[in-house]
Amino acid sequence: MTIRNLTGPGIGRPRVQKIPGFYGERLIDGVVLKDITLYADERGFLLEVIRMNDNEMKASNIRQIIASYSYPGVIKGWHLHTKQEDRLVCVKGMVKLVLYDYRHNSPTYRQVNEIFMGERYPRAVFIPPGVFHGVKNIGQEIAVVIGMPSLLYDPDNVDEVRVHPLDNDIIPYNWECRME
């Protein structure tokens, strides 16, 4: 069978995961992506979320640990911190974490990363200040994301910039599932 001249809408080169569960040209500068080992036996399983001596994840800077629950299909984002570092781990369900580098002096300025993580792919992600991030629950049940920020939440001085997840002129990203 000969295939010729395949052009037109919807035809193109497929995206390739050079890093499993990750789409992007390269990892955004300063972001750390770490697979987490899941220990399982007949009693259940254990996930070591983070060790406080993990220098790569700057774990010693953690000031608070929060749990964010989201319903299937819900998008929580976009938000950016100017001073705060974030560390995220999805411990229930599956999510798509999307990052957008908004740091004008960064070598990966305007780079987009998609990271898939959760029960089926346990991993931790370190997000430096200046990188927009958002999470979409891509599973069929409630997803739980553990957040470990470097600053205590202060309602009188919130270190956060928010942008609408679907309607904005800053981040060139479509949250829909890409059918390929």
Rank of each mutant, 00 (worst) to 15 (best):
W78S: 03
W78V: 01
H79S: 06
H79F: 09
L80Q: 13
H81A: 02
K83P: 00
K83Q: 11
E85Q: 07
D86W: 12
D86S: 09
R87T: 09
R87N: 05
R87F: 08
R87D: 01
R87K: 15
L88M: 14
L88V: 05
L88S: 08
V89C: 13
C90H: 14
K92D: 02
K92N: 03
K92F: 03
G93W: 06
M94W: 08
K96F: 06
K96E: 10
L97M: 11
L97H: 07
Y100E: 01
D101W: 06
D101M: 08
D101Y: 07
D101P: 07
Y102H: 13
Y102Q: 06
R103V: 02
H104P: 04
P107S: 10
P107C: 14
P107I: 01
T108M: 02
Y109F: 15
Y109K: 13
R110W: 00
Q111N: 10
Q111S: 10
V112Y: 05
E114S: 02
I115Q: 01
F116N: 05
G118C: 04
G118P: 02
E119L: 01
E119P: 05
R120I: 00
P122S: 03
P122R: 13
A124W: 06
A124S: 14
A124E: 06
V125W: 12
V125P: 11
F126C: 00
F126T: 10
F126D: 01
P128C: 03
P128S: 05
G130L: 11
V131L: 09
F132Q: 09
F132A: 13
G134M: 12
K136C: 10
N137P: 05
N137L: 04
I138W: 11
I138G: 03
G139S: 15
G139F: 12
Q140W: 00
E141L: 00
E141V: 07
A143L: 13
V144D: 14
V144N: 10
V145G: 12
I146N: 11
I146W: 09
G147K: 10
G147H: 15
P149Y: 12
S150M: 09
L151F: 05
L151N: 14
Y153H: 14
D156H: 13
V158A: 00
D159E: 06
D159L: 12
